[in-house]
Simulated assay, not measured.
Amino acid sequence: MTRGKPQLLFVHGIGGLRDTATDRREWLEALVAGARDAGMADAISGLTMGWLADVTFANYSDLFNRRGAQGDTAGELEEDEVPFLAGLLDAMLEELAEQFPAESSPQDARVISDARYQLDAAAQGRQSQGAGEGFRGLVGVTTTMLRLPGLRHAAQWMNGRAILFQLAQVGRYLDRRAKKAELGMAVRARVLEGLDPSRPLVVVSHSLGTVVAYEVLHEYGGEVPVWITVGSPLALGAVVLDRLVPRPASCPANVASWRNFWDRDDVVVGRPHLGNWIGPSKSGVKAVTERVDSSGLWTHTATKYLEHGAVARPVIEALTS
């Protein structure tokens, strides 16, 4: 049986270089706002003063940005990354088409249709002219996608090239071939660093961080009272789901509760398939998905999710139980 002070672990998603202290503070402040929204203000001092848990922000961003760039220009894409990115964009456009149907969002639906046309053209260009042409075509696709309201107002993505290079981090993490698999191993080692399996671990993971956390928790030997996933791409079919280890995908055995949250206006992650596409653990635990609605045009940030009482409540409950 685990005992002692709980641990709270934050696992981030794609992006440029991060400052561990700054991100830890911002995620914690958002969780405090969520606790207030949940009517759990009595837990706020415990969070801010560190009485409730030892809080860790697992920062592995430097492993993707070793050349000192800020995420959008860190090196060049390799030829074998183009097919993965094309598949990821295809899955994203499929999800976006569900979010912006022509009958209710005709202008946005036209943008998605234009991006789909460009994606098909990029695939043809790669076949006839090589990966360089395919990459330029994908930049065109992401540039077109920036016309959608949510993406257009995302400060982290100022141009189509920036989107593409940051989305490439997903493929780089999931690449299992020879030396390329070393990156994923290094990321998981960074997340596991300093954790104490003898104490309860509450995990909050976002975006690519949910993919990392899935594999980390299958390796981790300690008790996890609750695992929170927000803005998760885990259910993006063959692009992500079929590349997870272990397969077939299932809830980690040490997770007592898995809560997955998604925002209807999150243009990166669409329909909530996790509960249907990822199997339960041997004890029957599986993802329980709940929708939240954030204000503003850009909802795919961890802090937006954490500010919701519905997201903060299971975290606080696990830390205080």
Rank of each mutant, 00 (worst) to 15 (best):
L17C: 13
E26A: 10
L28A: 09
L31E: 06
V32S: 06
G34C: 02
A35F: 08
A35V: 10
L52W: 11
A53W: 08
V55R: 10
N59V: 08
Y60D: 01
D62M: 11
G68I: 02
Q70C: 11
D72M: 13
T73D: 12
E76L: 04
E79T: 15
L89H: 02
L93H: 00
L96M: 02
A97D: 05
Q99R: 12
F100E: 04
P106E: 06
Q107H: 13
I112R: 03
D114P: 04
A115W: 00
R116Q: 10
A121M: 02
A122F: 03
Q124L: 13
G125E: 14
S128D: 11
E133A: 15
E133I: 12
V141D: 03
T142E: 03
L148D: 04
H153W: 15
M158A: 15
R161H: 09
A162P: 05
L164T: 01
L167M: 14
V170N: 04
L174E: 06
D175S: 14
R177N: 09
K179S: 14
G184T: 00
R188C: 04
R188E: 09
A189H: 15
R190A: 15
R190W: 12
E193S: 13
S198C: 07
P200T: 07
S205N: 03
H206S: 08
T210F: 07
Y214V: 05
E215K: 02
G221W: 03
V224H: 07
V226E: 06
V226S: 07
T229C: 01
V230I: 05
G231L: 04
P233C: 05
P233R: 02
A238H: 09
D242A: 10
C251Y: 02
S257V: 12
R264F: 10
D265F: 13
D266S: 00
P272A: 06
N276L: 07
I278T: 05
V285M: 02
T289N: 06
V292S: 00
V292D: 01
V292Y: 00
S295H: 04
W298C: 06
T299Q: 10
A302I: 12
K304W: 00
H308N: 05
V311I: 01
V311D: 03
A312D: 08
P314V: 12
V315Q: 04
